[in-house]
Simulated scan of single mutants.
Amino acid sequence: MYTVCRRADAEYKPFLIEYNLQFFAEDANGAEKSEQPTAKKLEDARKDGQVAKSQEVATAFSLLSLFLILRIAYSLMGSIFTNIFARVYDNIPLVARTYEGRLPVAHITNIIHNAMLTLLLLCAPFFIVGFIVAFICDFIQVGYKPTTKPLQPKLSKLNPVSGMKKIFSARKLFELAKSILKLIVMGFVIYSFFSKRNDYLFLLYDMPLSQAIGLMGNLIIDLGLRVAIAYMIIAFADFIYQKRKFTKDMMMTKQEVKDEFKNSEGSPEVKSAQKRRMMEASRRRMMQSVPQADVVITNPTHYAVAIKYDAEEADAPIVVAKGADFMAQKIKELAKENNVEIVENKPLARMLYANVEVGELVPPELYKAVAEVLAYVYHLKGKA
């Protein structure tokens, strides 16, 4: 594209500037993603591991379940921890007297093994509940359809240029902003919680150990539940954002929709050609049946319907061919060449053409009219 420019002074000479109109397009392809994603594109994205899912939802509910379990089983866990320490420290004097101050390695290993086994059994409910909660959260968000495609190694992941682009991408900036927001919210929740309970912290110096541990446990659990609830609000907002962002990323251009339709359903040109060939083959078979017809009923110029009646093959006459305009003329020409009688009956021809397809029996309401025509043709040919 060229445009003519002139100087502003008295003596000017016109000159041309060349520019490309593609610079003003919506994107590199000059197309805008204005179409909703199709089911096939969403399915392909799911196979690639691309789904609208927020990791914060599973984290929030796991955190909430953790502190709820602590609230329920806090006293039991405290008793188990106390028994572990009591059992370990109670054995120290006995072992010192028995082994003259030299503790065998096997005995130490046995004590540690029992303590670790007890702690593992104590922590097992947290791991199990955390796994179940995370699985349910992911299942509710995206359903159950596992794929290993995201785990497959790709050389593109080792590209440093792509890595730098991901680091400074809009997604990473959003994640950074979200992390800062979480720190601010959590900091506010923690500060507001302890600012109202700072007197409890000074009472810890005058309490026995068991009471101090109980007080600290209650404070931590109450704070954890508040943090979990605040985190759930952030997770809900992030889930809505991830849903909208995923839908926006999956949007398609009109050309992409057309290309996908061609790939899945076949090109319209190819389908049209196939349909045309099928119709031509059907016409050839139909025209081959005209010489076996008993009569051709005409309009006389617009419609032609060929009928055959064989009492041994069917209970009623059969329409073996029909056509309009040009096809009607071809049927009549073929009938004349093969000495098939042509009878003009305008109402009957129109009724048969409009209501009976090729290969179908004549309906009962037209029996009388068709029988009269066949009787006339049989009389001309001297048939019974």
Rank of each mutant, 00 (worst) to 15 (best):
A384K: 15
I17M: 08
P268T: 14
S267T: 11
P300R: 04
K245Q: 13
Q255W: 01
A371Q: 06
Y309K: 01
G130W: 05
Q255M: 04
G49C: 13
V295N: 01
Y89Q: 05
L215I: 11
L70E: 03
T109Q: 15
N83S: 09
G266Q: 08
G359A: 09
F174A: 13
N338A: 05
K262E: 01
R87L: 07
V88P: 00
F194N: 11
A31V: 05
I184S: 14
Y200N: 06
Y2T: 03
N29T: 10
V290F: 10
V377S: 03
K145F: 12
N83G: 04
M251Q: 09
A324D: 11
F174H: 12
P14T: 02
Y378N: 10
A58Y: 13
S267H: 11
S54H: 05
A58Q: 05
G217Q: 00
T147S: 10
I167E: 14
N263A: 14
F202N: 00
K154F: 10
E100G: 05
A106K: 06
Y19H: 02
V129S: 02
V270R: 09
I136H: 13
G130E: 06
A349C: 14
E256L: 01
I167W: 00
R276S: 09
L219Y: 00
D259W: 06
M216A: 08
N29H: 07
Q211V: 04
A115N: 02
G78D: 01
E26C: 04
L63H: 01
A228F: 02
L352H: 14
N20T: 08
G217N: 12
N218D: 05
D138V: 04
A60R: 07
M216V: 07
L42H: 05
N110F: 13
Y231W: 08
N338E: 10
T147Q: 11
F126Q: 05
Q255P: 04
L366Y: 09
K172V: 14
A273P: 01
S79W: 14
K322N: 06
K41H: 11
T301P: 09
E260T: 06
P208A: 07
N299A: 14
T59E: 10
I297W: 03
P104M: 00
L203N: 15
S62A: 04
D310P: 04
V295T: 13
H107D: 05
I108S: 15
I190T: 09
L176S: 07
G101Y: 10
L158Q: 13
Y353T: 11
A96I: 10
G101M: 10
F261W: 03
L204R: 05
Y241D: 10
K53N: 06
A316D: 05
A311V: 15
G130D: 07
I184A: 12
K258N: 06
A237L: 14
R102P: 08
N299L: 04
D222L: 08
Q141D: 11
L181K: 05
Y367C: 08
F174L: 15
I234P: 01
V295E: 11
V319K: 10
K336H: 12
A106R: 07
D138I: 00
S264L: 07
V373C: 01
P347Q: 05
A106H: 11
L158S: 12
D294H: 06
L219N: 03
I80T: 07
Y200Q: 13
L76T: 06
I240S: 12
Y205R: 12
T253Q: 03
E313D: 12
T301G: 07
K346L: 07
K322G: 02
D44L: 08
G323Y: 04
I136P: 03
R97N: 13
Q22I: 00
D222I: 00
